[in-house]
């Protein structure tokens, strides 16, 4: 059974190592995946967690926490504007390119299965 699990893990890890590392460290829930994908498609979004929750169809409470964590991890930027905290996609071109590679790769069904596997392994049911 252990060798089967190891084999499975090896197959699921077969992808660009930088993308794999990004998934394992940052794409740990489906909410994160939806939010990252949203920002990739709409890269100049500037909005609050509450509005982001509306755009990706998720709970505001969950997005509030995830967006703040992703800002601390350098995926998003957070800017204090009056009474609002506004989130934007990182300006780092390398990170933007990595996200673009991930979203592009996820057009492939097999890759998506690998992504889902890693999110579930990370315990990110939501």
């Amino acid at each position: 059974m252990e060798s089967y699990n190891n084999l499975m893990s090896d197959i699921m890890d077969e992808m660009d190592p930088r993308v794999l590392e990004f998934i394992k460290n940052h794409v740990t829930t489906f909410t994160r995946w939806d939010t990252i994908r949203f920002f990739h498609e709409n890269p100049n979004t500037q909005d609050t967690a509450e509005n982001l929750a509306r755009y990706v169809g998720r709970s505001p409470a969950v997005i509030r926490q995830e967006a703040q964590e992703m800002a601390e991890e350098g995926i998003f930027r957070s800017v204090k504007q009056g009474k609002h905290t506004v989130y934007l996609l990182t300006n780092d071109p390398d990170r933007r390119r990595l996200i673009a590679n991930l979203v592009e790769a996820a057009r492939d069904r097999t890759f998506r299965m690998k992504l889902v596997y890693h999110i579930l392994r990370a315990g990110g049911q939501q």
Binding site: N44, T45, Q46, D47, V79, Q81, G82
Partner: peptide, 26 residues
């Protein structure tokens, strides 16, 4: 957009309002 000649900003009315009032806003 890639040539930094155009930017399509997706935001909400209250954030635009506070952006216009804040000189250091993105």
């Amino acid at each position: 957009e890639e040539a930094n000649k155009l930017r399509i900003i997706f935001t909400s009315p209250n954030i635009l309002l506070s952006s216009l009032q804040s000189p250091s806003s993105p």
